[in-house]
Nucleic acid binder design. Structure first.
Lengths: 220, 220, 220, 220
DNA sequence: TATGAATGAGGGTTCATTCAT
DNA sequence: CATGAATGAACCCTCATTCAT
């Protein structure tokens, strides 16, 4: 006699194949443009298998999100191995690097990052769930770092604005390929340049923030 | 005495209504999600009218892009009325403000900005045209300003990186509403806060750039 | 004061342009595949002009048929200039040549021939009219020639069968290009070979008929 | 013991119904005039079933062609049961009879013949496939017979011309109904007269060919 | 005379979904 | 566990036609 675990992922080969294909295609095309047909074709599975294993397209998307989130954060921990005692400048550097890696890398571990980046600029119905489960703690991590860097009396709103300036830069470099490759053929900001990009964004942001500290007294 | 504009849009009432509805719906839904059925329904027009006036959905999208681009840049000139002799800091401020206005305002003049923002993160077939006709000159305007602010010996790549950091911030604040409203209910970075956002992005970016100047001597 | 002639063809330039384009396109594509859009575009005329001048697509087709029929039979008279006193073999040769010319030539004079050939294998609603106005007298001309060649006591049905054997050959060589060019690349039976084809069909048919004469006594 | 045919059609009832309806309608209307809506309506199937079973209209047409070709050539073998040792005259007779049966019969077995006849006079995109798979071997069968009948030194071109004269007659009698019924009401050359028509075409053609033999010495 | 504008019907195709097995 | 079969809704597009000017 055998007991079947609920949602046990190892039981079904088909389920795994669908998850694999779905992760890839959702990351490439986005939720609405991806078709269950393509996913099943690529997984070598029957269309009805999605209904059986995941109820419907939404269920599949949710399962993909949950599954690859774990993989993603295992592969690229947000603190990037930094201890809590480290300086905030280094924390910021680590945060940005892990963000870029998660969003710009290729293969399985980056699929979640791509989906997340997509949801940031074009939210689907799954966005509410993502905000609570992933984005909020992630964002709090960033605002914590920013708070340390800013004047302690800085208002919450200022912290948030600065945090979003950082997120915005990271996100944009992720989407920049189409425009950069057209504006300056031959040049690119891809996963090969993650170290360069990390250094740039950190530098660009940090010196703005430091300056903030000084000028915060003089200015309004 | 009156001069007739080329492609005078006043000729057909239906054509104008379709352009109106299409601008709104394309801006809201994006190219692929928008349906000609919806557009025609909202315009009170027959579906075949699109074939008659614009050949097909692509033609309509192109017409919308062209039409609202003019309106957008008339309403929000990139130099925002600044003379050439002004300081680069003020030029940057003007650039950012016009960008935000164009992307975050509501109603007709902002539709092009929204479409452009969409194309930045999820390009369609029209992106190639947009790059040549709109984005390239627009981007050159920004890199020019950034060049003035940076050390004159700064490499092209650095100029481009910094320019993209600025664009990235602007774009992200345009998309931030869904995430902000969920993370911090009650707070928002909308069109009401354009002045605040402009000031923030300018300040955040400027002091990064200025610091660069200083450190450029010490560093490599 | 001016009197307008009914259907006067010289009055309108647009009407003439439409007739020209329609003749060409109907001959190329056939009635149902041809579109009024294409015709008007090629004629440089407005779509509504067809409604004005010809009531509808049917009216246009009818007008084209009538117009080019005259041109066709002027260019290629069925007796091909043969006097009535000539031998039936030469009459047959002339008939076949004029048929092939009318159906296989290019340009205006052949358009009617092409349309007629089309109607033979895929009749439209206009076929009834064509039968009475064109095909019947034309067919009677052929059956007359065949009668002269056959035994005088040959039954009507035999005359008709033989006539159709001749028509069938002519028609098929007109349609043969697609199959011949594929079966035997480089070879063709086109308008350049009309003389060869005429000789062949005449010869092939004649000797069948002559043999008939002889055997008609022996046979039932 | 039973062998399962490749592409066994018995699997799906809907698929069979669509094939049935499609065969009928394609044969009646031709490829372009036939609509998938009509076919599905007549088959009592959903429109999307065509996409499921045949991918699209083209796939359906191809499937119909393949399916009824088998049925057609099973029902009417081109050699019509003649042994190889028989005289060429009898081979020709058999060839013509099977051609007429295939093209003029009614019901399922004749649908392919009708489609083929249509492709001969108005080729679609499928014509290239048909030429290679069906028409070429079929035509070679005929040219072989004709070669036997003609002088052995007859040029290839002559063989081809004579073969086409035969094909042309057969094809035309298949299309003759509309014109015959109008020219001579009451008379017809239909499937009831296949024996008569076979005899006529064979006779008409044979004596032409035989005469060729004799005259080939005397004439040029 | 001539046309720009508009329309309704219908074309093929594709989607996510759900049965019955 | 898994799938072949089937479906209804919606997609974009094109047709011939007609109206008001």
């Amino acid at each position: 006699m055998k007991y079947i675990m609920k949602n046990s992922p190892a039981i079904s080969k088909t389920r795994a194949a669908i998850m694999e294909a779905a992760g890839k295609i959702f990351a490439e095309e986005g939720y609405s443009k991806a078709t269950v047909r393509d996913i099943c074709r690529q997984a070598g599975a029957n269309i009805a298998a999605i209904n059986y294993h995941f109820r419907d397209k939404k269920g599949l998307y949710l399962a993909v999100l949950n599954h690859y989130q774990e993989i993603s954060f295992q592969s690229y921990p947000p603190d990037f191995g930094m201890k809590e005692t480290k300086k905030p400048e280094e924390k910021l550097h680590a945060f940005i690097k892990s963000f870029l890696l998660r969003a710009m890398d290729e293969g399985r571990p980056a699929w979640f990052g791509r989906l997340l980046a997509r949801e940031f600029t074009e939210p689907t119905w799954a966005f509410d769930i993502l905000v609570e489960e992933t984005i909020r703690p992630y964002f709090q991590l960033l605002t914590g770092i920013v708070s340390e860097l800013l004047d302690k009396r800085a208002k919450k709103r200022k912290v948030r604005l600065c945090s979003m300036s950082i997120i915005g830069q990271c996100l944009y470099f992720r989407h920049s390929h189409p425009v950069i490759s057209r504006l300056y053929p031959g040049e690119s900001f891809g996963r090969k340049h993650i170290d360069e990009l990390t250094k740039h964004i950190t530098f660009f942001s940090l010196h703005g923030l430091i300056k903030e500290k000084k000028s915060s007294k003089a200015k309004k």
